[in-house]
């Protein structure tokens, strides 16, 4: 009986510790402090982060020096291809020099319910900055980039987590509308992984 009570108490404590970690409201989440996570756990977190970064919902718009978004993923067949319609995002990354992304990708918080329609979100549709090149890049490459303040807009891991938590265009990856596979895990889990990776010292596979 005592053992049962002890097990229940442990389960309750574990539940209290873990449940808030994946809550949608990041105000309630207790993130690990810097230096409190071991390297192996940090690398495991990184491998999940890479699954997200390399997923088509994210990588298709992280095309580096190329200003052409990509079409790839389960609904596009085996071979990735460039965005149709000769789309170029230009240096503005919103297509201002050519054809603005907003011609088709409307600024809207109303969910897209039509299969194959243009993705939309309550933010200006755009390509990621050229420095954030993810499409077709390795785990090692992206990891090195994300911990390099010169290439990640001066963000330490806390700023990266905050950026992901508050930039709603990124949230689209987990709610891409009808007919599109969302990025793996959840937004809350992804933010927790950024914290785990950062608290472990931002380890990369090549270290």
């Amino acid at each position: 009986m005592q053992n049962t009570r002890a097990l229940m108490a442990c389960a309750l404590v574990a539940g209290l510790l873990l449940a808030p970690a994946f809550a949608a409201d990041d105000e309630t989440v207790a993130y690990p402090a810097a230096g409190t996570v071991d390297g192996a756990t940090g690398l495991e977190a990184w491998s999940r982060i890479y699954e997200v970064a390399s997923h088509p919902r994210c990588a298709n718009c992280h095309t580096g020096e190329s200003d052409v978004p990509m079409w790839s993923g389960p609904s596009y067949g085996d071979e990735p291809r460039q965005h149709g319609m000769r789309i170029r995002a230009g240096e503005s990354r919103i297509g201002a020099e050519h054809l603005t992304c907003s011609t088709c990708h409307s600024y809207s918080e109303i969910p897209q319910t039509v299969p194959h329609a243009a993705p939309r979100v309550g933010a200006s549709w755009q390509l990621a900055p050229a420095e954030a090149h993810w499409f077709g890049k390795s785990s090692e490459f992206i990891c090195a980039q994300l911990r390099d303040l010169e290439r990640n807009d001066g963000r330490d891991y806390l700023a990266l987590a905050d950026h992901i938590g508050h930039d709603v265009i990124l949230h689209w990856a987990w709610s891409p509308g009808v007919g599109r596979e969302p990025a793996p895990y959840s937004l809350a889990e992804h933010i927790m992984d950024i914290h785990l990776w950062g608290a472990a010292g931002q380890p990369c596979p090549q270290d």
């Binding site: 603005t100 907003s102 011609t103 088709c104 194959h116 329609a117 243009a118």
Partner: peptide
């Protein structure tokens, strides 16, 4: 689904696909 452009109108001076 914004694939053809037939529904293009001006919205605040910018061409947009009105179906979207």
């Amino acid at each position: 689904v914004a694939q053809c452009g037939a529904c293009t109108v001006m919205l605040d001076g910018q061409p947009v696909r009105s179906c979207q």
